[in-house]
Structures are given as C-alpha cells and as structure tokens.
C-alpha cells in the first residue's frame, strides 16, 4: 500500500485520522459469518483516538473566534486528551494547562511535559469528576486567559467523529456494516460516529459500552450512573448499552497483544470485548454481521502501572 502522501504545506494536524481499519479474526466466533473490524487509533500522531476531538475543538474555536492568539488551552483529562491538546498547542502556538487526577500514569505526565504543557493535579480519590470541578473553578477565576475546551460538553468532540471516524469506517465497509460499538468516556466517539451512522442507515446498530460498576479498572471509561454525565451524551443515538466488567476488558486487551500483535489499552480491550459479545449474540441467532469498533490507544502508557 502506498503511504499517505501529504502536501508540502502539511502540518501535524493533517496527519490526524485516516487510520488503518484492521480485521480482528482471532476474536471472531468460529463457524460464523460475523466480522470484527477496528480503527487503529494508536496510529494518530498523538498515539490515541483523542487527536480527533482535540484538533476539532481547536479548529472550531479558532474559526468562531472563541480561541485567539495568546490564550491558553485548558481542560481536565485522564491523559489522552491532554496529550493531544499538548501537541496541537505546541504546533499552533498555544500554552496548554491540564488538570489530571494525581494517579495518572507517569508516562503520560512525562509525555505532556515534553510538549511543554503545564499540569495541575487533582485529588486521585475523586477521579475525573474531581478534575472537572477543579478546572471549572480555575476557568471561573480567569475567564479571559483560558479557552476551556471542555471535552465533556463541547459539540466539536462528537463532531470530530461525525466528520471523520464514521465516514472513514463507512468508506471501507460500506453498507455491509451492521454494528458500531464504542466505550463511553466523554461519549464523543460513540455519539458522534453513531449519529453519522444513523443518518447513513438507521439499521446500523449503535452500541455504547460502560464499566459494570462505579469502582472499575477500565481506565478512560465512565460509569455514567455514578458520574457527572457529559453534556454531549445523547442516549437517543444509542440502540443499547453493554456493561463490561474490568477483568473481561483486561483479558481481551492481553489477548489482542498475544493473538493479534496489538498492544492496546484497557478501553480498547473493553471495546473489542463488547464487539465479541455482539458477535457471539449474532452467531447464536444464526445471523451474519459486520461489527466495527475502535482501538483507542497503545498500552505503553499503562504498562508501567500494571502489577509487577
């Protein structure tokens, strides 16, 4: 395959998206006509799916005049959005401030520091909601200094997936696509891509994934019943929500490394576990299907945190 040749005027922003769509044959049920495909989002320049919403939030704010030269970008993040904002901030000349729970992995702290971002830590016991409350307070005190990207409420977040992720998947799978499944962190991926898929064909089954308990280890995913529900979350887009236990998500992440060579994070493991359950359900009903999901990021950012 030819590499993507970008024009000489291209910047790192032009390298976002158009990630490979890979088939995960080892996860597909045996003796069934069900395919599982995944967008390899770790191929983005920031190493995760979050490059898409981070860039869209910046571009939309620039074009509407809400983000102007000299302002600082700020958001609360569990890491990947922070990495993405940091790299686009560096490339486009904005200072970046990130509020992260203190237990965010060492690797991610070092990565955002390498891009020149400033990190403010919130109480790890209050999880991402503690970081959200802290960033809101910081912005309230200095509203003119910061552009608060507010990934949980910013329509540009799902719009990124509406404009790019869903059309990219559809361009390759076409009307063979029967299911799209993705975990809910901000909900941007499943809501934005799901909205586009529903416009293409209401028959495409759109499935959200959540951890099955408030206390879980699927880093990046949110148990909505016990959390601040993101403003961009639109349950009307979803046909159903699957609830995944931590252990199943972790086991699938490990399996993807051992059987497919994709060393991915836990949210990607949960996504593929959700896809596998949908595939098994189709097989049990003697149905065929083509399921798409997302491999959100690489495991290198978590691996040091795993038990020795």
């Amino acid at each position: 395959m030819l590499s993507r040749l970008l024009p000489a005027s291209a910047s790192i922003s032009d390298a976002v998206g158009k990630t490979p769509l890979v088939r995960l044959r080892s996860v597909e049920p045996a003796d069934a006509q069900v395919e599982i495909w995944a967008k390899l989002e770790l191929a983005n320049p920031g190493g995760s799916v979050k490059d898409r919403p981070a860039l869209q939030m910046i571009l939309d704010a620039e074009s509407s005049g809400r983000l102007r030269p000299g302002m600082s970008l700020i958001d609360s993040t569990s890491g990947n959005t922070g990495v993405a904002l940091s790299l686009f901030g560096a490339a486009r000349g904005y200072h970046v401030t990130l509020v992260m729970p203190q237990n965010v992995s060492e690797a991610r702290k070092r990565i955002v520091n390498a891009y020149g971002a400033e990190v403010i830590y919130s109480d790890p016991l209050e999880q991402s909601d503690g970081a959200i409350r802290m960033v809101r307070e910081i912005v309230r005190c200095e509203p003119t200094r910061y552009f608060y990207t507010d990934q949980y409420s910013n329509p540009s977040n799902p719009r990124a997936h509406y404009l790019t992720t869903a059309p990219e998947i559809f361009a390759e799978l076409g009307h063979r696509l029967t299911h799209f499944v993705a975990g809910i962190g901000t909900s941007g991926t499943v809501i934005g891509a799901g909205r586009r898929f529903k416009e293409i064909s209401p028959a495409i089954h759109v499935v959200g994934l959540e951890p099955d308990d408030a206390f879980h280890g699927l880093e990046g995913l949110k148990h909505l019943a016990s959390s601040i529900v993101p403003a961009i979350y639109d349950p009307g887009v979803l046909d159903e929500t699957l609830f995944i236990d931590t252990e199943s998500g972790w086991v699938m992440a490990e399996r993807l490394a051992l059987e497919e060579g994709y060393l991915v994070g836990y949210s990607a493991g949960a996504n593929v576990e959700g896809a596998r359950r949908l595939a098994e359900r189709l097989k049990a009903a003697n149905q065929t299907g083509v399921i798409a999901t997302v491999l959100c990021d690489h495991a290198s950012r978590y691996i040091e945190a795993r038990a020795p």
């Binding site: 016991l125 991402s128 990934q151 879980h216 931590t246």
Partner: peptide, 10 residues
C-alpha cells in the same frame, strides 16, 4: 491506607 481507583473518562 488509600484505595485509588482507575482514572475514568476522556
């Protein structure tokens, strides 16, 4: 002793 959960959300 602190019980520290995973980081959830975006």
């Amino acid at each position: 002793l602190s019980i520290v959960p995973a980081i959830a959300g975006g």
